[in-house]
Amino acid sequence: MLQTNLVVALDVRNGPVRDNLLALIQSCAAEVYLVDPAAAGKSAAGLAKHSNSHVVYFTDRIEPAVIGAVGALRFRKLDKVLLVHEHSKDAVQDNPSLLEFNHVLSSTPESVSNQLVLSTIRKIREKDYYGVDKCLAYGAHVHRFSLSNSDERKWFRDQLFEFVKSLDTIIGRPTDTFAQFALEVQEELLMNAIWDANPARRNAERKGPALLEPHEHVQVEWSFDGTLLAIGVRDPFGSFEASVIYKYLRFLFSRDRIKQVKMQQEGQGAGIGLYMVLERLSSLIITVEPGRATEVIATLNLLQSPRLMSKQQRSFQYFCV
């Protein structure tokens, strides 16, 4: 008998998607409670019997009544996960109830990948969310650094640029464009972590170097698993607001490059850095522990051409823990 320590409430209307998720979640040794789509609110109330459990509510639609019914119940712990796919993304964007969810997952336009569902369940179960290793295949070496001075960014730019360029033999083609993308992504994430995320430095002059106090140090990770390059930047502030990233969902879920350029032009100003990041990656994973830490991980699929990568819909994960 497999040990279960998690109850997953599955509230998905589409039959084949629900069947796939059901089998997938059961394969993780989690108990599944199927919410009846025809009477979701009433059915969700049946979760009350799991009041001593850690419940993870998985759904692919935003129905305030159901979210409210689940939220009103008492559990040992409750995580609400929203799965975004092609048919639900329009309804999700600009929906104020989006902020009710702790976690948002999207991958390919058609569905949320099995790997993403599995890794999310594992993260929730083990309460271990941080680190680029969780986005990559097992065995990839993780390069870890700490940044204590804003001037060190130049070193980080040079090192990452050379690191990615050195992967050309593995990739089988020059990686100049990816090297440029990688250093630009890292650069914007570092600037955010040094200044924008830090309440004490947010409005500080940025022209000169900023020597960071030990409690302000920024953690940086890079790793490559043969396909994906991951760049992770973690700050110790946890000030990243869900509402900020939700502003960018329209860009993330779009596959129309002209529309994306127009969104960038309209949204420039304070948000330009994040738009630069979003344009240059395959997937974005944001983990926020309010008041304690924010980790932003960007992955780039180096086996795709840069052109194809820029045209594809980005995968996106948001975890508030």
Partner: peptide, 9 residues
């Protein structure tokens, strides 16, 4: 020019 960041622009 190798890169131009958001503040550099």
């Amino acid at each position: 020019v190798r890169t131009i960041n958001s503040c550099g622009v």
